[in-house]
């Protein structure tokens, strides 16, 4: 789902069902216009750091928010997070870790690498739904970002 439109949210999630549920919830609340879903870290890196400097991509399309899962095949969420936060330009993008893991080492590692938020996906649907709604609402509408004024 690569588009030329400005991307609001970049969702990096290997679990298709989780991704579907997230996308459904996001769309349901109508906060987000354009959401790009990538299935693993590799895809995410390719999307963010294109190999070829194509004319279309010289002007980088920066997402307003990245929702990042940790446990993914090939390249995991931490690696993606690390790469992004090492890039001077990209580090400004808020990154929310959205994961199943409640393990404290994961949480502390996420924050240490510069994650802006760490959210555990609730099992209960109601809670899940509420979480996603609040998430989109907060990061895209409440939170003031630099890019909006550029």
């Amino acid at each position: 789902m690569i588009t030329q439109q400005p991307v609001d949210v970049l969702l990096v999630e290997d679990d298709a069902f989780d991704a579907e549920l997230i996308i459904r919830e996001i769309k349901k609340h109508g906060v987000i216009n354009n959401l790009v879903h990538l299935r693993d870290g590799e895809e995410a890196l390719n999307f963010i750091f294109p190999e070829q400097e194509t004319p279309e991509r010289t002007k980088r399309v920066l997402p307003k928010l990245i929702l990042l899962d940790i446990k993914m095949p090939k390249v995991n969420g931490f690696e993606v997070l690390e790469r992004i936060k090492m890039d001077d330009q990209l580090r400004k993008i808020p990154i929310v870790i959205l994961t199943s893991s409640k393990e404290s080492p994961d949480i502390s590692r996420g924050y240490a690498l510069g994650a802006n938020s760490y959210i555990v996906k609730p099992v209960s649907f109601d809670k899940f739904s509420a979480t996603i709604k609040e998430l989109g609402f907060y990061w895209l509408l409440v939170n003031q970002t630099e890019s909006q004024y550029r």
Partner: peptide, 22 residues
């Protein structure tokens, strides 16, 4: 085991609940 349980076991449960809800 704990790690994988917290990641992998929760995802299907969430999917079941989520999709049942849908």
């Amino acid at each position: 085991f704990t790690y994988s349980v917290s990641h992998d076991l929760r995802a299907p449960i969430r999917a079941i609940i989520g999709f049942t809800n849908i």
